[in-house]
Design a protein around this nucleic acid. Structure first.
Lengths: 187, 187
DNA sequence: TATAATTTTCAGAAATTACTGAAACTTCAA
DNA sequence: TTGAAGTTTCAGTAATTTCTGAAAATTATA
């Protein structure tokens, strides 16, 4: 397959950025390619278009599948595997959020929990634990948020994102609302 | 300086995670060390405690300063530089968010803007641009959100984080509320 | 200004990570 | 079964990143 210069530069750029997003250059390129492609592609299409080895493509696709960012599909009467990027932009965003949480936050959270179980044995530990507790609490809140976001419908996600300049407003709403809800519930 | 086993394991863990968070192992360890330390440390303290070379510490501290995560300070009558992690957990969280946005989102956003300026020259580009437009819009919203979050006081950030499980509720109510607010404002 | 204390730089070594391509494996159809 | 079409694996190599340590630079003090 041949890409226009414009699209090539996007694909290459995504490769460069790849490392900052947690996968390597070629995986980034492969994903970009799949995202912009109207049709599903075979591993060979990808290897050719990007000029990388067939073996590398196989490994890269495995990685992308582990992120649940690409899906295999098949064409009738053709036994090759065809790959495409999963669903909507929201699906992608959710998956990336989820995977990064798993890789970047969960392990630390679990270590922190362990460390915080021990009683501090001296003033150095005493002080350290205070900081670690703060980090723990923050990460735990972030985790809750991402869980919550996972559950929202695309519609609500959209609303929430567009609401940005209204974070202040959201906070205001919360007071009134939560207040109301709680009063209602406790009645 | 000597760390208890517990703290050592935290520092080492932070090193391992470092790469997932955008800096290398030793930079991660250095930061962890500074975060849990009650007193500011000299570059030599750090090199000794972590068993890494003085030169490496110097480069690492530069990196951490570029993230604005550590500050230099001085002790009267001592010309050594002392380093400490910046302020509160919120300061840290904000800085990390900000830096990651700069490194992970901004460059892509700017490339996307460029690519989207060109009129699609064929149906391949046509389709690609649609997807790119979606990605662009999403990233732009995320950017706005992070800007908004930067401005919030620790108090409000706290409230917002704690709100997580209520996001759904708030969104449901949103229509009524935004309606109400706007009516109020336009009066 | 000289020198001692401290920090930074950077060339090369070490460690890590990514990539290739040929061989092994799997799957399907005849 | 056999073999053709396709995929995966993985040992070895290439590329990249990180780290060291000695030399250069900086800064304060006498």
């Amino acid at each position: 397959m041949n890409l226009t210069p414009n699209l090539t530069s996007f694909v290459m750029h995504f490769g460069e950025m790849g490392s900052r997003w947690g996968f390597n250059r070629t995986v980034g390129q492969m994903y970009a390619l799949l995202v912009i492609s109207a049709e599903p592609l075979t591993a060979n299409d990808i290897a050719e278009t990007l000029n990388i080895s067939r073996g590398n493509v196989s490994m890269g696709l495995k990685e992308l599948q582990s992120w649940q960012l690409v899906q295999v599909s098949h064409q009738p009467g053709d036994r090759k595997d065809y790959f495409r990027a999963i669903g909507s932009i929201w699906d992608m965003a959710k998956r990336v959020m989820e995977e990064r949480r798993k890789r970047e936050i969960d392990p630390t959270l679990s270590l922190l929990r362990d460390v915080l179980l021990d009683k501090p044995s001296n003033s150095q530990e005493q002080h350290a634990q205070q900081r670690l507790q703060e980090i723990h609490d923050l990460l735990e809140s972030v985790t809750k948020w991402t869980n919550e976001l996972q559950r929202l419908s695309p519609d609500n996600l959209n609303t929430l994102l567009k609401l940005s300049s209204g974070v202040g407003k959201v906070l205001d709403m919360k007071d009134k609302f939560i207040g109301k809800e709680e009063r209602k519930e406790s009645r």
